[in-house]
Each structure stands twice: as structure tokens, then as C-alpha cells.
Design a binder for these strands. Structure first.
Length: 198
DNA sequence: TATACGATCACCT
DNA sequence: GGTGATCGTATAC
């Protein structure tokens, strides 16, 4: 019984996945070190009709990965200095992804393995900060997240109640006309996060 | 080939 | 509230 989310998890409706990812754990293995943190905020980008989605202008070299099989990473550079991590969703040839915006309860695996120590004093509240801290860049674009190598997501340890999921407008997409009104940004309530301890 | 701008962040007033 | 950093990508020429 593995905790790694399989491809079937990603081969579903993007909005549902964006909500289901809350409380799940993003795991990054790099240079012999492993870091794990709980996903607490996401945004959904769904199809060519979503004017905020990079695929709204169709298939290009950059957006190609979003048209591919679900469960792969879509990592792009923004503003010349930051990277953003997305997970590709939906069936093949339907472009959609979920942006990982915030992580909490950050832990590092001790060298003796199978034991985690909390990392305090940092906040990963923003896609740029997440990628900087986890050393995620374009080299990880198109990585298969279902394989459990370098980067993957593990299922939540507890059930997240619907009332603990807050929906709001996506940020930084003022150009997206009516699509900017969509409540496709999802976050874990402060109360629910407090219950996860740590 | 040239240009405009962005799914951000840190720092300023 | 506002702005600069900094470069890949899309689009125009």
C-alpha cells in the first residue's frame, strides 16, 4: 500500500483535484535530502476556454506538457526570476493543471531516515518561494509525479471536511476578463490547519 | 530580429 | 498603496 498519489488521481476534474490536494504532502528528494510539506493552497487552470490558463492561446512548446498525460509536473519560469510548480490534470489532450501556491508544516528527513524534523522560521506562502526552497526549476518540467522519483505527492493523512476548504478568486490574472471572477483558488482554513498540529 | 509582458516577490512610501 | 528586478515566451514585424 503506497501513499504516492497514482496517475488515476490526476486523471479527473481539475477543480476537484485542486480541492483534494489540500492536506496532501508534497515531497522533494534532491541531492540525498528529502523535504516534505503539506499543501495548503492551490489554484485550478482549466482548458483553453479559461483565459487565465496558459493554454488559452492553444498548443505551444511551453503548454505542450499540459496537453499530455496527467500526473506530470508543469514548471515554468515567471518574471525572469521565479518558478511555479503545477501538476497536470485531466485526460490527455485536454490542457489543465493545478498550481501549488502554499505549503505548511515543513519537515526534513533526518539522516537516519524514517524520522522527520520540523523546519521552523520559514513560510512557503507563494509559488515562487516554494520552488526556490525545494530547488524546483525547469529541469523538472514534464517529470512524472506518479513514479515517486525526485518529486511526488502523498495522500493526506486525514480527511479534509468541505467546510475546511475556502474558495476565492485567483491572483495575478487581471487580464483574464470574466475568468478572473472564477472561485478557483482553494485554501485550507486556519482552523483545519491548526488541527494538523505542529 | 524586436518588443511587450507575465499564474511573483521584496522592498519602498 | 506602488515599483523594480529580470528573462522566457508569444507575438508582431
Amino acid at each position: 500500500m503506497t501513499k504516492i498519489l497514482p496517475r488515476e488521481f490526476y486523471s479527473r476534474n481539475t477543480l476537484k483535484i485542486a480541492r483534494d490536494l489540500l492536506g496532501c504532502f508534497l515531497v522533494r528528494e534532491h541531492r540525498g535530502k528529502t523535504i516534505r510539506a503539506m499543501i495548503t493552497e492551490t489554484e485550478a487552470y482549466h482548458g483553453e476556454d479559461d483565459l487565465a490558463c496558459h493554454a488559452s492561446r492553444g498548443r505551444t512548446p511551453r503548454t505542450e506538457v499540459m496537453y499530455g498525460a496527467p500526473g506530470h509536473a508543469y514548471v515554468y519560469m515567471i518574471y525572469g526570476m521565479y518558478h511555479c510548480l503545477n501538476v497536470v490534470t485531466e485526460r490527455k489532450d485536454f490542457p489543465a493543471a493545478v498550481l501549488i501556491r502554499e505549503l505548511a508544516n515543513i519537515e526534513r528527513m533526518k539522516t537516519n531516515k524514517n524520522e522527520w524534523e520540523k523546519i521552523t522560521g520559514i513560510k512557503l506562502d507563494g509559488p515562487g518561494k516554494i520552488c526556490k526552497f525545494l530547488q524546483i526549476d525547469r529541469k523538472l518540467n514534464k517529470l512524472d509525479l506518479a513514479k515517486g522519483e525526485k518529486l511526488w505527492i502523498e495522500k493526506t493523512a486525514q480527511n479534509i471536511a468541505k467546510r475546511d476548504i475556502l474558495a476565492s478568486k485567483r491572483v495575478g490574472i487581471d487580464y483574464a476578463q470574466h475568468c478572473r471572477e472564477y472561485l478557483w483558488r482553494f485554501s485550507l482554513s486556519a482552523e483545519a490547519l491548526a488541527k494538523t498540529g505542529r
